[in-house]
Design a protein around this nucleic acid. Sequence first.
RNA 1: CGGAGAGUAGCUCAGCCUGGUAGAGCACCACGUUCGGGACGUGGGGGCCGGAGGUUCGAAUCCUCUCUCUCCGACCA
Length: 440
Amino acid sequence: MRLSRFFLPVLRETPSEAQIVSHRLMLRAGMIRQEAAGIYAWLPLGFKVLKKIEAIVRDEMDRAGAIEILMPTLQPAELWKETGRYDAYGPEMLRVEDRHERELVYGPTNEDMVTEIFRAYVKSYKALPLNLYHIQWKFRDEVRPRFGVMRGREFLMKDAYSFDIDQETARKSYNRMYVAYLRLFSRMGLKTIPMRAETGPIGGDLSHEFIVLAQTGESQVYLHSDLVDMAIPGEDVYEQDDLEPIVRERTNLYAATEDVHDAARFEAEVPAGKRVSARGIEVGQVFYFGTKYSKPMKATVTGPDGKEVPIHGGSYGVGVSRLVGAIIEASHDDAGIIWPEPVAPFDLALVNLKPGDAATDKACEDIYARLTKAGKDVLYDDTNERPGAKFATMDLIGIPYQIVVGPRGLAAGTVEVKTRATGAKEELTLEAAINRFGKA
RNA sequence: CGGAGAGUAGCUCAGCCUGGUAGAGCACCACGUUCGGGACGUGGGGGCCGGAGGUUCGAAUCCUCUCUCUCCGACCA
């Protein structure tokens, strides 16, 4: 993409409404545009990142054996009345009426609907376990939206729902998602810690929140320091039938958000030198809720013994749009965002320091053409901005690598390759620079 | 939903107290000089001053109502 043809409305000044760093940087980098309180339009740069995150989530869910569907944003109110949540959910749920005066809700979550879909088709235990997920926009009419996309009213969420014949197998499904979450956040360059959590309005009795440690986190968390650098399971982990050991290794160590924090237990279970108290951002949550929905909704299957039993369910959410903010909170510096490579909006930036200079233009076009052909997503800054402004923009939008091409370097036969995260600069020949990134 | 604050140009803000036909910096456009870490000059475009009432000869400015947004708290992926 040529920057001169791209739509990248970067702001030099910080919009006054933004308080936290991720919100400020997302506005400055031209990633989002606020349209109403807690409601954002995604501009090209932000949308690219959102899609990258979504793709990683999807890929990991598929690996873990979940099956993607897509449920609508609007749901009939009857479904919610059937489970009693129409009243239980409160004003946070957006309710609308269509022209026939039928009540609809803009889905804040999908347990009710997915259970309805399940019960319509699945009648035998032989179809289990089953895990259906979708990635869809949700709406929760928060009293006080804030922090940009970190707490919007409209947000993109991946929600998966597992169906099992009994508690024991449901536990396996739960563990599978637990491990999938460890991997999926790690793949985005995030360190997340699973923590015991309250179950909230979703209900149930087994739940963990996945928390990114960040100084600007919204909640206080307490944990055993060994959890921080625990190895992430490899991609072949799903071949194992029983993931309990991996889960147990973590749940044996104390980790809790302040809602469920027990100071006495914390001190009893964690040696003084291992106690960590930090701020965190919740990016995912897993629940096991048993028959909470299957009983009232009569989502039953016939078991091997011929008896009809309600399925045991779990639900598993990832805040996809929130992750964009969370990643920035965890990875930025004074100059701007530092994208982890897997979620970066572009693989690398190519900076032409002197457009109009024949040799510089030619070198840039050459690099651009060859890297693009090699499958790299390159942002080519071919604008007439002054070099300082170009560097500031590139640092702000946080593309992992920059190839800087100018007459001075070319005279010496080199271009500069900069790594955003470390600030490291190398002088390479043009060929060396291309080869550095050109192997697709 | 309680408490606090803000709505004036795309962004950051001044003007309001003490009414008199709307400003600055940045951004944008043109020309020129510049050009390796956010250049400079000259000229230019852009605002029914959130909305509705009211007071007044006259309202961005005073009064009333209303909408929106932000912050702190309680609540949440």
